[in-house]
Simulated assay, not measured.
Amino acid sequence: MKLTRIAPLGALVAASTLVLAGCAANEASADGSGPSPTGDSSAALSGTINGIGSSAQGTAQQAWIAGIQTANPELNINYDPQGSGAGRKSFISGAADFAGSDAALSDDELAGTFAMCADGTSAIDLPVYISPIAIAYNIEGVDELKLDAATIAGIFSGTITRWDDAKIAALNEGVSLPDAAITVVHRSDDSGTTQNFTEYLAANAADVWTEEPSQTFPFAVGDAAKGTSGVAEAAKSAKNSITYIDESGAAGLSIAQLKVGDTFVKISADGAAAVVADSPLVTGRAAGDLAIAINRTDTQDGAWPLVLVSYLIACQQYQDADKGALVSSYIQYVAGDAAQQAAAAQAGSAPLSAELSAKVIAAAQTIK
């Protein structure tokens, strides 16, 4: 589906304004070889590129695509939010020109070949979207819920099965918890959100969460649904339910506070961004690959370590140079401050820091 066509009017207006601001990342050079360093608005982009991937990125992609196409009427960008795993598989096979993924390419994936990429070259991961993952719930009469990593791990692994369990009650003194079974809702598809969620539990509750981090949910517990919108609808439809979900999809559900260190923290994009800023890059990657090793045990004030970093994945060099130029321009646009602010307004994400934005733009400029 082409998300541009369903973008809300507010996103269109905000995004078109940011494009016309003249950011150098938004425009192609006069000879079509890549973005103009002067941001010359006369050098319009044209052609078509197709992306598949992260459903968490879906709302942000609406704003990004609407904005760049408003300024470039001959440009056509399609993005299908099938999920992170589907995006990476499609990119690897050549069914997509770029992928959106809430998990960076694995070492095994990088060791393989990419159908769109020129012989002898590989792919790179460029972070473009930072968002907190919500522990969202639907319990009538419970407006405030506090959970720690061990209790979350117990709920989602199936060892804590009722809302009035003593471990939940101990964290929520004074809250009237129902004498009811917990309905767990998790992702059915290969999901980067699941990868980030299970990384967090493995790092903070290893004695309860006994499985390795994975992009597929590892326990036969509760109900499964596909994509961000799927788990949101399933949780809204089921009484006494709980799910993990990118915050952009949690509207209509309540969100639990998370115990970080010795305090309970309310979800925030700023808290997610602070954790990412405190995290190093993954070592041993190719130049231009900016995969981030998220510090899942960060306890700085206000931190929200249950965070996802979502990437645009592209070739270092495309077999089709025209495709490479368009992908390069699009990623530079997306990483720019105005586009990041548009996504924050539309999806509630955290804009990239100035330092990280500059690194992503510089890396995207090397795409051929």
Rank of each mutant, 00 (worst) to 15 (best):
M1V: 09
T4Y: 12
P8I: 02
L9V: 09
A11F: 07
A11M: 11
L12M: 03
L18K: 11
V19E: 09
V19C: 12
E27I: 09
P35T: 06
S42E: 14
Q57E: 13
I65P: 02
Q69F: 01
T70P: 01
I77P: 03
D80V: 04
G85N: 03
A86I: 03
D102G: 15
L105N: 13
D108Y: 09
T113E: 11
A115Y: 01
A115Q: 08
C117T: 02
I135L: 15
I135F: 15
Y137G: 08
N138L: 04
I139A: 00
D143P: 01
K146L: 06
T151G: 13
F156N: 11
T159P: 05
I160Y: 02
G174E: 07
S176K: 14
D179M: 10
V184H: 12
H186P: 09
S188L: 12
S191I: 03
S191Y: 09
Q195D: 11
Q195L: 13
A202L: 01
A203I: 00
A205S: 04
D207R: 00
V208P: 03
T216F: 14
P218Y: 05
A234K: 15
A235K: 06
S237M: 01
T243A: 04
D246L: 12
S254R: 15
V260I: 02
F264G: 01
I267E: 13
G271I: 00
A274T: 14
V282P: 09
R285W: 03
A287R: 04
G288S: 00
D289V: 08
I294C: 07
Q300A: 15
G302K: 09
S310M: 06
Q319P: 05
S329H: 08
Y330W: 13
I331K: 06
Y333K: 07
A335V: 13
A344F: 08
Q365I: 01
Q365M: 07
K368C: 00
